[in-house]
Design a protein around this nucleic acid. Structure first.
Lengths: 355, 355
DNA sequence: TGTGTGACGGAATACGATTTCCGTGCAGGT
DNA sequence: ACCTGCACGGAAATCGTATTCCGTCACACA
């Protein structure tokens, strides 16, 4: 709160102390194109250091382009978003801008409200991350707001699946899951249970499709693949697996889950039920969260390049606008949509079967 | 980037559209004390909605007190900070302000640089979190900067141990560790190994002291408590415990670690070495990270009230200045220093011994 | 009916920085 | 010696909003 209380030191003070005009002081301290006599430059620098001058970004923002980037996320407590944010920070730092972060809890209302608040800060760019960002949410009010922001010269980048017409970077869940299915098939797993989340979660069901495709391509019979829906959490995986074990695992040789949390639950249920992993049954997950290497046996999973995604979001956000040309043909020069693939990480929770 | 490109809609535009003066429009939209005629109010509101007007916070910040709070943290990827940040967000929202977050990697240089950058944004308050914030770091430059900021009306709150003269909220590591030691003693553990971190980490060594105090108070013989220094990580715990097992555990009945990560490593080493937990040896940690309930057996630990700490930091940051009185007596009216205690959480990795 | 008073709209100014524009002094060419 | 142009410091305009100050109008009271 600088202004109510007076003792803030302003550019004016620095100029006075250095015995020059504010214009000169500004040119020295603000990195101007104009040159200043070395003698004056030295004086200004000395005065600024002496007075501990820091320029007021609010005032500065009124004349030059802002250098902040705003990130809107569902939840900052998940380990994955932490890694993405850290990478964004690092990347932003290389171009002298900085990132401010807000979380929305995932509700469209709070997303809308947060976006409005952040737009008021006139950031250079807005990066949105959500499991679900829908154009039609709130009757399109969110989309309208974002479009208006973009028309005012802002830049919007979405990390995640979205039908909004902005630059986006998404994980190819299906394509990333396919190698996992293929790997399990190649290592001799014939009968597989897939612990899928609920049917309506888009990224989760894409992973299930990928698993299935990979398994079939590896020669597994479609009849031998069983899909079990469960809650997306450790408990969900635990419960579903416990039920499986109670029913009798039968010929099942592998359990592959839509994410690591579910897989860890499955692992836990196996231990509780006396089912050896990986000798009796292999278990695999998706995401490569920190926990995956902390459990025993260490979890085979699919690693996502989260750091690269974070850095790339910032790069996209700062890149010169791609769709600058007039809206000519339909679909011509639309938003750039990047897709990244995860990589299979084989650890100790799966093995090779020779049966 | 609002200003280079013109199409930003300003208060002036709204006023023109509504057929009133900017002063009136400002009074309606900016929550002024002055009243305006309902008819005009309606017109302004309509115009603002029509034009999708959002006030420019940079410009607004020049006239009224800012409503942003800046958080400086070492690392945003740790699970604990995530919970704290989420709670801060929630708390800030209740007073119409918002939090922006930056990470420093823990180096004093980046801390200094980050603080300078954030001070330039003239936030309402600055919340610092670090494992170590030292007054003398960088020859006191960081401290000087913060003092200057406070003199300009800002507010500084530190979460963590610090010798800086600011309001702070810290975890009483020693006091929180004591009940753990006492509990182990009361449940019949006679010989205990403490996996302490390196000697020079303040909070970690405070925990070690607490463990020892608790154990002794519960009747354990000082001769039977062994302190083993190790790296603060899962691997550190694993290595130290593996070494212990190789040497032969002897009479050791409990291993208590300075944090959960170390304890999880110990757990893992026990499993690898065929040492049953908790039947052969009990294992306990400190922090209650998410992982603590994800491992098997679920870890007995000390839970820290992170959400309360986050909320309280914001409350402190927004509270009217406490040390407002002139610096009268030495130590009189100094910064308020709050201390919080963790609570013992007993789970499956410890048991009661009757030997 | 005259006058004090409170309500309220609008012009002007402040906020702290950047940038444009202007004026001056000095160097160099003819 | 005079004119041209460059370099550079300083006054002033500017950015978008909040607020102060002033003027007007209506209402109420005597």
């Amino acid at each position: 709160m600088p202004h109510p209380s007076r003792p803030t030191v302003t550019l004016h003070d620095v100029a006075a102390a250095a015995g020059v005009s504010v214009a000169t002081a500004s040119r020295v301290l603000g990195g101007s194109s104009r040159t200043v006599a070395p003698e004056y430059e030295r004086k200004v620098l000395a005065a600024a250091a002496e007075l501990r001058y820091t320029s007021d970004m609010s005032a500065r923002a009124m004349r030059r382009k802002s250098d902040s980037i705003a990130l809107v996320a569902d939840d900052l407590t998940t380990p994955t978003i932490g890694i993405v944010v850290a990478a964004m920070e690092r990347q932003a730092r290389t171009v002298e801008s900085f990132v401010s972060v807000s979380s929305t809890g995932g509700t469209p209302e709070r997303q809308y409200e947060t976006v409005r608040t952040l737009c008021a800060l006139r950031p250079q760019a807005l990066v949105l991350t959500s499991s679900r960002f829908e154009a039609k949410a709130l009757g399109g009010r969110l989309l309208d707001e974002l479009l208006a922001y973009e028309q005012q010269g802002g830049r919007v980048v979405v990390f995640g699946n979205t039908d909004m017409p902005f630059d986006s970077i998404t994980v190819d869940d299906r394509g990333s899951a396919r190698p996992m299915g293929a790997h399990l098939a190649q290592t001799g797993h014939q009968r597989v249970v897939i612990l899928a989340g609920p049917r309506d979660k888009a990224n989760v069901s894409a992973r299930t499709s990928g698993f299935v495709e990979g398994l079939l391509s590896g020669g597994v019979d479609a009849q031998d693949v069983r899909i079990v829906n469960c809650e997306v959490s450790r408990q969900g995986g635990f419960d579903a697996t416990t039920r499986l074990i109670e029913e009798g695992l039968g010929q099942v040789e592998a359990i592959v889950a839509a994410n690591d949390l579910i897989a860890v639950g499955a692992l836990s249920a196996c231990r509780a039920g006396g089912v050896a992993v990986p000798s009796r049954v292999s278990v695999a997950g998706f995401d490569d969260i920190q926990l995956a290497v902390d459990v025993t046996p260490r979890l085979t999973t699919v690693a996502l390049p989260l750091a690269e995604i974070g850095a790339e979001s910032i790069r996209l956000a700062l890149a010169p606008r791609s769709g600058a040309e007039a809206p000519a043909g339909p679909g011509a020069g639309g938003p750039t949509r990047e897709t990244v693939l995860g990589t299979l990480v084989v650890r100790d929770s799966t093995t090779t079967r020779t049966s």
